[in-house]
Design a protein around this nucleic acid. Structure first.
Lengths: 110, 110
DNA sequence: ACGCAGGTTCAACAAACATCATACCTGCGA
DNA sequence: TCGCAGGTATGATGTTTGTTGAACCTGCGT
């Protein structure tokens, strides 16, 4: 059962939901960006420079969170986002490598 | 450039399109079914027993075809469907293994 | 105390999409 | 030649979903 924030535990992460979450360009960008950074990297939602409004951003991060791709934790004022690397690697070995080797450019960071 | 039937060539297959194609339960089922069969297996569209109408079936197979996941060839009266195993393995190594180890039950075949 | 930046919630809208019925085409077999 | 099964094309429809602005909450820094 997912926790109060909607995080599924490792066993609950299922491939169709993950694929569905990754099917959106915005969400794909977030995960593809995170996967290229060192393990444990934390970033704020707004640090990704997504070209959408705040509410849309909240929406996308919720989808990612509920699919089990990211973990969000309240850190004072901001909500920090981290890739669930170990969980995903355990559940779907090779998936992250796939995203890493197929990461699109991150416009906001260039 | 895709051929007349909308098949992209190997280099044109891109991950976001593939993920989008796999995000639908029906299409996921088709690919997850094909990936468990011997390489080169050919099946008709209707042999998957998808619980949808004929036109919907055509629609889903088109999406799969244009995403580069399957190859369809007119074989007399029927249009045979084959998984583009080599192309997918070359382009996204590990993706098919992922689907194979996470294949859902195929209701129509059980 | 105040402002502000980061996020959320809500209601609404627009685009994408899965679905279907109908009509149609095409080989194959009787 | 006729019927039929497999598929396609064309709207049309209803749902999903990505998108937004406005109102609001919450810490942090001044």
């Amino acid at each position: 059962m997912p926790d109060a924030d909607g995080h599924p535990n490792r066993e609950e992460i299922n491939l169709p939901a993950v694929l569905h979450a990754l099917a959106d360009p915005m969400r794909y960008r977030v995960v593809a960006t995170l996967v290229r950074e060192p393990d444990g990297t934390e970033r704020t939602c707004s640090s990704f420079g997504l070209p959408v409004s705040k509410s849309t951003r909240t929406h996308h991060f919720r989808v990612l969170r509920e699919a089990g791709l990211i973990r969000q934790v309240d850190r004072g004022n901001s909500r920090m986002t981290r890739l669930r690397r170990a969980d995903l690697e355990a559940r779907f070995p090779g998936l992250l490598d796939l995203l890493a080797s197929n990461a699109p450019a991150e416009p906001a960071a260039s």
